[in-house]
Amino acid sequence: MRKARLLTTAALAVASAGLLSPPAAAAVLAAGGGLEIHPATVMPGSTVTVSTSACGGGGTASGDASAVGAGTFTLAPSTDEDHEQNATGQFKVPPSAQPGTYEIVAKCSGSGADGKQVAGDLSVTITSTAAAREQQQVAPKGHVKTGVGGALGPDPVQTAAGVAALAVAAAGGTWLLHRRARGDRI
């Protein structure tokens, strides 16, 4: 009895914490025809298409994108043969929109689903995924300015002087090591 009460309490705690809500919400949206947002991730200034089958055939809806700053818009019955049960509309994300996730809402009207409300999430980002991929694939070009000169610098006189200095140092080091090996004192 006590184990059953503990399991029930744990299940209620998990449910109230919202850990079960994403799959449950997905099931409700799938059953009731949620709000489809295309593309789901956009940059400010982009046009977004919203559609839903929740309003039934011939149904319309009033959309609300004021969360992202776009105001209201209308969803009308789709003329597309593949989506004849959908109400579809568009809105433009304002150029001043800040990055984040925003809830877009549509309320059905003029059909058997009058007053039914559906929602979907729109993500606004400041970089497009295509631009991000392009930036990652660009190969570096040019010289790296590290403060250390290369072996073949722009001045051949300085290069020759550097090579000569290295040769003198190597010869002097070899001569000192040879004297030390013979036991001569410096």
Rank of each mutant, 00 (worst) to 15 (best):
A25H: 05
A171D: 07
G45T: 07
S16I: 11
W175N: 03
E36K: 09
Q85E: 13
G147Y: 03
S51P: 09
P94M: 04
A61R: 01
R182F: 00
A26H: 13
T49H: 14
V118E: 07
A87D: 07
S51V: 04
A30L: 13
L176V: 03
I37L: 12
A169L: 11
K107W: 01
A97D: 12
S128C: 09
V68L: 10
E134Q: 15
A131T: 10
A139D: 07
W175I: 15
P44R: 05
V124F: 08
L7F: 12
A181E: 04
P95V: 10
A132P: 08
T125C: 02
C108Q: 05
V144H: 04
G69W: 11
T159C: 04
A171S: 07
V28H: 10
L7G: 05
F73V: 06
L176D: 00
T60K: 15
A70P: 07
C55I: 03
R180I: 00
V118N: 02
T88P: 05
I126N: 15
T52I: 10
V138I: 15
Q137Y: 05
G153P: 06
I186V: 04
D155A: 10
A67G: 14
H143A: 14
I104N: 03
V42F: 06
L19T: 10
G112R: 13
P95W: 07
T101L: 10
G32M: 06
